[in-house]
Amino acid sequence: MAGKSGRTISATPDKSLKKALLSWEGMLLLLFIAINILCKCISPVYNLTNVLREMPKYLTEIFLLFPMAYILLMGEIDISVGSTVCLAATMACLSSNAGVPFIGVILIGLLTGTVCGMINGFLATRFRELPTMIITLGTQIVFRGIAEIALGDGGSISLTNADGFRAIAGKVGPVPYMFFIVIICAVIFTVIAEKRVFGRNLYAIGSNSRTAFYSGIKVNQMLFISYTVLGLLAGVSALFLTSATYGANTTTGKGFEMDAIAMAVFGGISTAGGKGKLIGGIISAFTITCLRVGLGQINMNPQVILIILGALLICAVLLPNISQSISDKKKKASRA
């Protein structure tokens, strides 16, 4: 079928450095550097060693960011993941105290998270009519509720033998093991999102899930996988969290889902789906972590830090919207 008009269509991609720097991710990188300079200025003890030492407190939430980003990219959401962390941590602690060998404790923690994720995935794919917001609102209450039952009247549990957990909280020099695992996860999840078919399909589903389905993409399968992986990583997060706290209680992991979503959104991933890059989420996660560490070092009220984070989150979404509408107006004015 020869083109009747002989018109040709260009297929050369535009790969300029300027564009890359002007992108949201480029801006975030600049912000990351700026925040580090700021922290260095305000805190005399802000250096790499100290940051790495204090990081584990905040790192556990970053595990949740990766699969949460996938789910957000598909236009769905999971607000039950904090409860999943709580339940997984509870189960791990209970089994550890019951004398289960540490490898078994790890498996139980991971399995608990995975099962929770599968339940969400099952409900989300079987009842597509329901917004996942509502489904996970329900399971959020259920998962934490089960943890509350398991924890009993005291509402908390302390590890009687923390040897195993102490081992995974270990370090190579100043760098905790957890840091390596976060980085490995970051690389794997980014490569999948950017370079693999699975990632492309994530964006397709988030941009238009009907078209994706009509084009032969197994939408339900991908949703189920993503929710399950989020559950699994909630298990990982729970284990590392336990290794820092040596126990669990009814408020363990509270607000983790919001933090994970906030990191993703701050990183430019739209909750409407289909837009944003995982790398942005990762940069924003480390930016937020550095900010928390730095402000924590100067003994700033943790509540003020929360206010700053909340304001940053809103600005992250508001600013591009405002600049967009200004540039639209300018374009219109220059045309007229």
Binding site: A11, A204, N208, T211, S215
Partner: peptide, 17 residues
């Protein structure tokens, strides 16, 4: 609604399946 992803480029729409 079901044939195209409107926000995507033409090329990626064509190769979607």
């Amino acid at each position: 609604k079901t044939g195209l992803i409107l926000s995507w480029g033409l090329g990626r729409n064509v190769t979607l399946p």
